[in-house]
Simulated assay, not measured.
Amino acid sequence: MLKNKETLIQIDKIDRRILEQIQKDASLTNQQLAEKVGLSPSPCLRRVRALEEAGIIVRTVTVLDHKKLGLSLTAIILIGMDRHTPERFAAFEEQVSEFPEILECYLVTGHDADYMLKVVVPDMDHYHHFLLNRITRIPGVSGVHSSFVLKRVLDSTALPLGYLS
């Protein structure tokens, strides 16, 4: 059972199999998905639509290869803010949401930072420009610590569904 913002949602074994399959390959046709989960196409489609309507399936995306597109530098940036006010955080979040280089942004705890960003750019020159001309110019940013990804050991978008009963 999953708790949605509005209601409690029942997830059974078939729903879980549907979610596992479409996380692996969202390009499956309904017919292919139905075969993989052991349903006929109509009930499979009804279940997928119900999962979408319930907000479990948020969107369907295509995962691209960064390096083949010339985006070979991935940076993890820890950001410290000068004040911890809702207004300061809201302004920061609004501004970083406009930067296409930022793939992920998290408000974090347990570090000497308030935010953690995942950034993808072509190279160090682009990163340097992005850091100095965008990130450090956001009002309230008081500290920046950058780390660079040397190797992607695990890179998944699939959620672990084994915990669902």
Rank of each mutant, 00 (worst) to 15 (best):
G110V: 12
Y115W: 08
Q31C: 01
S27W: 05
L64V: 12
L39G: 01
L73K: 11
R59W: 02
K68Y: 10
H66R: 15
E101K: 10
E98I: 02
E35F: 06
P86N: 09
P86T: 03
I14D: 03
V48C: 00
C44T: 02
P41G: 00
V96M: 06
P100F: 07
T29F: 04
P41W: 00
V61K: 00
V37M: 01
R16F: 03
A50G: 06
P86Q: 07
A75L: 05
M116L: 14
S72C: 12
E52I: 09
A113H: 09
L45G: 07
K118Y: 07
P41N: 02
V48K: 01
R49E: 08
L107D: 01
T60F: 14
A54Y: 04
I79Q: 07
G55Y: 11
R49I: 08
G70R: 06
T109I: 07
Y106E: 05
L19N: 04
R59K: 14
V119A: 03
G70E: 12
Q21E: 15
L19F: 04
E35Q: 11
F89E: 14
E20N: 15
A34L: 02
E98Q: 13
F99D: 12
D65K: 15
M81E: 07
L73V: 13
D112W: 12
T109M: 11
T109G: 11
A34P: 00
K67E: 12
E98N: 14
A26H: 02
R16H: 02
I22V: 14
T29G: 09
P86R: 10
R49T: 06
C44H: 02
D15H: 08
L19W: 01
R16T: 07
I77P: 03
P43H: 04
P43Y: 04
S40E: 08
D15M: 09
L51Y: 06
E104N: 10
L64H: 15
I57H: 01
Q31R: 13
R88N: 14
C44A: 15
K24Q: 15
F89S: 13
M81N: 04
